[in-house]
Design a protein around this nucleic acid. Structure first.
Lengths: 198, 198
DNA sequence: TGAAAAAGTTGAACTAGTTCAACCTCCTTT
DNA sequence: AAAGGAGGTTGAACTAGTTCAACTTTTTCA
C-alpha cells in the first residue's frame, strides 16, 4: 500500500519527530478524499466532523449574514488546514460553509481519531497544541489588521503576504475576506477611485 | 507555605486532573505578582516574557497605529489570561502594550517554565492545547462578529455577552475594542443619533 | 459550440461611522 | 479645597466605503 498520507506526514515532521510507528498511526488516522469544485465539506447546522488538510486544491469557509451577505472566514490552499473550528473543537452545529473553490484532494481526520492520536502519545498532543497556537496567533494578526488598517491597506498587505491565494481565489471571496464589497475591491484594483483634481 | 497559586490550580482542574504532585509543580511554575493601575506587563519591542493569569483585577492589551490611534486587542478580568500571544508564543518582540486598568493581582508563568511543564507530562500539554484551541475559537467568533455586524450590533452583542467587562472598562477602551471611535460609542449609548423625523 | 450562469466593472447616489473642536464632569493628587 | 488631567459628550462637517443598477467579460457545461 502506497502511503497516501505522505503529505500530512511531511507536515507533522515539521513539528514533531515521526518514526515508522507514527507513520502507520498517522496513515490510519487520515483518509484521502477527492472533492469536486463547489462541493461542501461543512454546512450550517451540521457538526463539522473533520479537520481537513489540503493536499492539492483550494477551499473557502464563509458565513451568510442577514441580508444574504457572505463573509469569508478563511481560505486554504496546498498545505493548509480548514474546517469550522468552533464546530469541530466543541462538536457543535456549524454556522458556516466550507466549499471547494477547485477540484481538490484533502486528507481528513475525524474528531474521534484525532482524540485517539492525542491520547496515544504526548507528542501528538504537542503537535495539535502547536498548530492551535499558530492558528490563534494567525487570527490575532488578522484581527489587528482589520482593526487598524483601511480597506486599501488590508488589500495591499494581503496581496504582499499571500500572492498565491490572490491568484487562485475569486475576487468576491477575497473582498469579503478583507471586509469590503466586491465593487470596492474592483475599484481599488483598477485605480478608478475619484481623483483629487483634473 | 500557603498556596498562592490556588486560583490558577482551580483553573487547571477545570481542564485536567490535578494531584498533589501537580499542585507543587504548578505552584512552582507560577509566581504571584501585584500590579498597580497603569503599570505595563508588556511593551512594544520587548519580548513578552510571561503568560498572565488574572487572579483579581483588569487588563487591556492594545496597539498604537499610525496617527496615534489605539486599538484594543483584548481585555482580561478575573480568571482570564492575558499576554501578547504573537510575542510570547514565538518569543519575538512585541508590537503591543498590556496595561493594568485597576490595581491587580496576576499569576505569571514564563516561557521556559511553561515549556518545562509541557515537556514534563502529557496532561500539561493537553492543558495548553485546550486553552489554545479555545482561544482560537474565541478570536474566530470575534472576527466573524467584526465582519458581519454593524458598530451598534457589535456593541449590543458585547454588552449582552460580557456585562461585567462593560462595567469595569473605560469607554474609550471598549470603543476601540469594538472597532469604532469613542465619540460614536458615546452616541450609540445615549441614543442621540440623528432621528428619522420630528 | 453556444447559451446561460457566474464573476467582474463602472458610475452616481447615499450613509455609517469619523473627525474635529468645544465643552463638561469626574477623579486624583497635593 | 483647588488644580490638573483623564474620560466622556455633543454637534456639524466630512469621507471611506456601500448600495444599486446597468453593463461587460469569463467560465461552465449541456
Amino acid at each position: 500500500m502506497s502511503d497516501q498520507a505522505q503529505p500530512v506526514i511531511n507536515y507533522f515532521k515539521r513539528i514533531i519527530p515521526v518514526d515508522d510507528v507514527d507513520r502507520v498511526m498517522i496513515g490510519n488516522a487520515f483518509k484521502l478524499v477527492h472533492v469536486k469544485k463547489r462541493q461542501f465539506l461543512v454546512q450550517p447546522n451540521f457538526v463539522a466532523t473533520h479537520r481537513n488538510f489540503v493536499v492539492r486544491g483550494a477551499f473557502r469557509s464563509y458565513i451568510v449574514a442577514e441580508g444574504g451577505h457572505e463573509h469569508t472566514i478563511a481560505f486554504a490552499i496546498d498545505d493548509w488546514w480548514i474546517t469550522d473550528y468552533n464546530s469541530y473543537i466543541f462538536q457543535r452545529p456549524s454556522t458556516m460553509f466550507v466549499v471547494a473553490l477547485e477540484d481538490s484532494i484533502v486528507l481528513q481526520i475525524d474528531f474521534e481519531k484525532e482524540n485517539m492520536l492525542k491520547a496515544a502519545h504526548h507528542k501528538y498532543e504537542t503537535f495539535f497544541r502547536t498548530i492551535a497556537e499558530r492558528g490563534l496567533a494567525f487570527y490575532l494578526r488578522r484581527l489587528i489588521s482589520n482593526l487598524s488598517h483601511s480597506a486599501e491597506e488590508r488589500y495591499r498587505e494581503f496581496e504582499k503576504n499571500y500572492p498565491k491565494v490572490v491568484q487562485r481565489v475569486p475576487q468576491y471571496a477575497l473582498a469579503s475576506y478583507l471586509g469590503m464589497t466586491t465593487e470596492y475591491l474592483s475599484k481599488l484594483r483598477n485605480q478608478r477611485m475619484k481623483k483629487p483634481d483634473g
